[in-house]
Every structure is written in C-alpha cells, then in structure tokens.
Amino acid sequence: MTVPKTSVLVLDCAEPEALARFYASLLGAQVGPAGADGDLLLVAGTSGTVLGIRRDPDHVPPSWPLPEGSQQPHLQILVAPEALDAAEREAVTLGARPVGAEGEESRPGSRTTQRRYADPAGHAFVLVAVPAPSA
C-alpha cells in the first residue's frame, strides 16, 4: 500500500515574504504559512499550483543560464500563446528579469514560444506558450 503524499517545489531565498508575494501576484495565488516558525510559506493557486518559499539567510542566487548551456531545475509557467506577451509584461512589472542563453532571444516581443527569466531572488522560471488541448 502506498502512503498518500504530495510534493512541492521549494525555493530558498533571504526574504521569503517578498518572493512569495511576487509568485502569488504572478500566478493569481494566495500565500499562507506552512508551519508555526514562519520560515516556509506556501503559494497556492486555483489551478492546483503549490510552491514553497523558504527563508535561507545565506541564500546565494543561482547563476542561470550557465555559459555551458546546462539547464538547471526551473519553474515552467504555462500560458496560452496569445497571452505570452501580456504574461511577460506582467512578470517584468512584478520584478522578473529576462535572461537568455547565448544566441537566444529573450526579450519583450520576441517570437519564441518560451521566454526565460530570473525571479527577484534569482531563481529561473520560463513562460511557455502552450495551445489549449483540442476537443
């Protein structure tokens, strides 16, 4: 018998409250504590998205993308193709920083179907244009 479980991606940062607000705003989600100590916050969205944000006073932002082109673990946020430009403007307005691998376009108005960013604490995420499934 398998014990029921759930999982959550946890991002470490020095200021979890600010990063949790960033992702809550970006994802249209709510923030709540994940325990009594306040060092772990959960960002939960109506689409079932749950993201943990944990306090680490010694956090060092990751370097991404790496010059060698290696892709580190990252969050992918799926959007409709027609909403990609608007999602990008929203992310940048909230504090995301566009990043790109060598030779890759990653700027507002780019024609690519995915766009890479660093959140305010330096973690990688990608906005990916995904068409709605056909009926």
Rank of each mutant, 00 (worst) to 15 (best):
C13M: 05
L78Q: 14
A87W: 07
R21G: 11
I53Y: 03
L94T: 07
L9M: 14
P133D: 04
Q71W: 00
P81L: 00
D56F: 03
A36I: 09
A14L: 12
S110P: 01
P57C: 06
T2S: 13
P61R: 05
L75D: 01
G32P: 03
Y23Q: 01
T113N: 11
V79N: 10
Y117N: 05
R55N: 09
G35R: 00
D37S: 09
L9K: 08
T2H: 14
T46K: 13
G48W: 08
P73K: 05
C13D: 01
V50T: 13
D39C: 06
Q76D: 12
R54I: 08
A124I: 04
H59A: 07
Q114H: 13
G38S: 08
L26A: 04
R115G: 05
R111M: 13
G69W: 00
W64M: 12
H74C: 02
S63N: 12
V43T: 10
P57M: 06
D58L: 08
I77F: 00
L11V: 03
V79A: 04
E88G: 09
L127H: 00
A118R: 14
G52A: 06
Y23E: 03
E68A: 11
T112V: 14
D119K: 01
S134G: 13
L66I: 12
W64T: 15
L26M: 06
G69A: 05
K5F: 13
R107Q: 15
A96V: 04
A121L: 06
P16T: 04
L127K: 00
T49F: 11
P108G: 06
D56L: 15
